[in-house]
Computed example of a mutant assay.
Amino acid sequence: MQVAIVTGASSGIGQSAAIRIAARGTGVILTYGRNRQGAADAVATIEKAGGTAVALHLDLGDSAGFDAFRDSVAEALRTTWSRDTFDHLVNNAGIAQASLIEDTAEEDFDRLMRVLLKGPYFLTQRLLPLMADGGSVVNVSSSAAAATSGLEPGYAAYASMKGGLSVLTRYMAKEFSPRGIRVNAVSPGATRTRLADDAFTRFPEVVPAIAAKTAFGRVGEPDDVGALIATLVGDESRWITAQDIEVSGGYQL
């Protein structure tokens, strides 16, 4: 059985991706930050459908904890799947915070950098020795970083980090290709998740305006993105690497 690691899988896109990947017969190690119950719910959903999953805590903004996390992954692989390697890594965990450039505090900028760019960079580095040849990495970027996306004031820092992740995706694809490891990014548009302190729930009035700018007339749902992530780690995507695929339902089309 193949095994995938999905970070930030206690809700939203990560949870959908974990469930979708497990439905394909792949074991899942899913991570959570503060939402332990959400992670437990995801594990229960996967197990109810006949799959296998393990939830581990991970603070993506604290790279000092990555070695201990790698050890926890190795232990889970041995005890749950009798393996010493895993096959796929989905770098999904993230945070969002909006502020104009003139109002951005340096500590907020650094926090976004640690979670959105430094975190995936060094977590992938630490986990590479445990990763099997011929596997895959999927980085969750954002359409906010795309040159063709409509720019929204207040997202300069967030989009800059996500843009860095998209560039990192191409370099990972180049460097990991001798091992047959594919690396791609997905860039969701506006998606109804708990990001930015559950912004869509707190500010429902923004939804109609976003939907009006979207070709399919609605905002995205987590499963719209999770389904693609599951496809990218699947064998049918074996000839795809170094791509950044926008998943926005035609935003600003």
Rank of each mutant, 00 (worst) to 15 (best):
K174V: 08
S136I: 08
G154H: 15
R179Q: 12
A159Q: 05
T124D: 07
G154W: 15
G150P: 04
P129Y: 05
M161G: 09
A144M: 13
G163M: 02
A145R: 01
N139P: 14
S141H: 05
G164K: 05
V167Y: 01
Y171N: 09
I181Y: 01
G180D: 01
E175G: 06
R170A: 01
E175P: 01
G154L: 15
G164D: 01
A145I: 04
F176A: 14
G164I: 02
Q125N: 11
G135K: 12
G180V: 02
V137L: 15
L123G: 00
A145N: 09
R179Y: 09
D133L: 09
S166D: 13
G154D: 14
R126G: 04
G163N: 05
V140W: 04
L165K: 12
L151K: 11
T148I: 06
N139V: 10
Q125F: 07
K162L: 02
V167C: 05
S143L: 15
D133P: 07
M172F: 11
K162D: 00
P129T: 05
S136Y: 07
G164R: 04
L168V: 07
V138G: 12
A157D: 13
A146R: 15
N139T: 14
E152Y: 13
Y155A: 03
S149F: 08
A159I: 06
A145C: 08
S149Y: 10
V183L: 01
K174R: 12
S149G: 06
A173G: 04
S160I: 12
R182C: 00
Y158N: 14
L165T: 11
K162R: 04
R170C: 01
M172H: 07
S136W: 06
S141D: 10
S136E: 08
R179F: 08
L123R: 05
R182N: 02
S141G: 11
I181W: 06
L127W: 04
T124V: 04
S160A: 15
V138R: 13
F176V: 11
Q125L: 09
S143Q: 15
Y155R: 08
Y158E: 10
L130R: 05
T124E: 03
G180M: 02
Y158K: 12
G163W: 02
M131L: 10
S142N: 07
K162Q: 03
V137C: 10
G164T: 04
V167W: 00
G134W: 02
G135H: 13
P129M: 05
S177N: 01
R126T: 12
G135Y: 11
S166T: 14
A159K: 04
A157E: 11
S136G: 05
T148Q: 07
A157L: 10
Y155F: 10
Y171R: 07
V138W: 09
A145S: 15
I181P: 00
R182L: 03
V167A: 13
A173F: 06
P178G: 00
N184L: 12
A156T: 13
V183C: 06
G163I: 02
E175A: 10
N139R: 09
R170M: 03
A173K: 03
G134R: 03
G164S: 05
S143A: 15
Q125D: 08
F176N: 09
K174Q: 09
T124K: 06
G180R: 00
K162F: 00
T124N: 08
A157T: 14
A156V: 12
Y155L: 10
G134Q: 04
A146N: 14
T124L: 04
V167D: 02
S149Q: 08
Y158Q: 14
A132V: 02
M172A: 01
